[in-house]
């Protein structure tokens, strides 16, 4: 089942049709699901949630719970702040650098306690939330869409963290670390693309 879940996750990630969208995708199911779909179809956002979830799960149950609460709250709050201030951040080196750090931490098997992980999750949530705000400008039902985004972040963080916590066999812990190295590698290449002005 776990193998199937991993394969399904990879397929979802691989099939995601683009980077951050300038506007919300129309799911046909209303703004809540537009927001949810926006997150699921943004590979950079999905990688961020995955990285936080894996690192949190690696740190144990308390860290995983802390991340599942702080990340969606910070993400949703930053989207609202971005909408209020009418300022949205472009994907930049800070976002990528943070994810490189998270990926390397997962790869190195670092176990962060909840009180350290929570601020990290908040930081990631703020950076990505401000970027997400750009997609919600001029959208109908933006507040409901924010709820959809935050819910998607919460569910994904919870699932990823729970999966990481539940891994007991040695090879599954190794697979987790390999996943971290892949995230770091992807973001390192992204840093290069950003330096070239492509993102």
């Amino acid at each position: 089942m776990r193998t199937t879940a991993w394969i399904a996750s990879l397929a979802l990630l691989a099939g995601a049709p683009g980077a951050a969208h300038a506007h919300l995708v129309n799911s046909g199911l209303g703004p809540f699901y537009n927001g949810t779909l926006h997150l699921l179809l943004s590979p950079s956002d999905c990688l961020a949630v995955l990285a936080v979830g894996l690192l949190a799960g690696q740190g144990g149950k308390a860290s995983a719970r802390a991340a599942a609460i702080t990340l969606p709250l910070a993400w949703g709050g930053a989207v609202l702040a971005g909408l209020t201030l009418e300022r949205a951040a472009e994907p930049g080196w800070l976002e990528v650098a943070l994810l490189i750090l998270l990926g390397v931490s997962v790869a190195a098997g670092v176990r962060l306690p909840a009180w350290v992980l929570a601020p990290v999750a908040v930081l990631i949530g703020i950076v990505h939330g401000l970027e997400t705000a750009g997609a919600l400008v001029d959208s109908d039902g933006a507040l409901v869409a924010v709820a959809g985004i935050a819910t998607a972040v919460a569910v994904l963080t919870l699932l990823t963290g729970a999966l990481a916590v539940s891994l007991q066999a040695a090879w599954t812990r190794v697979a987790l670390q390999v996943g971290g190295s892949w995230i770091a590698a992807v973001e390192m290449l992204m840093l290069g693309w950003i330096l070239q002005g492509i993102s």
């Binding site: 990879l10 980077a19 973001e187 492509i198």
Partner: peptide
Amino acid sequence: TEMTAGQSAILYSIGFVI
């Protein structure tokens, strides 16, 4: 570094690493 112009950088990177 050999991505074709106009393609998604992050998906290129994900595909490359996978």
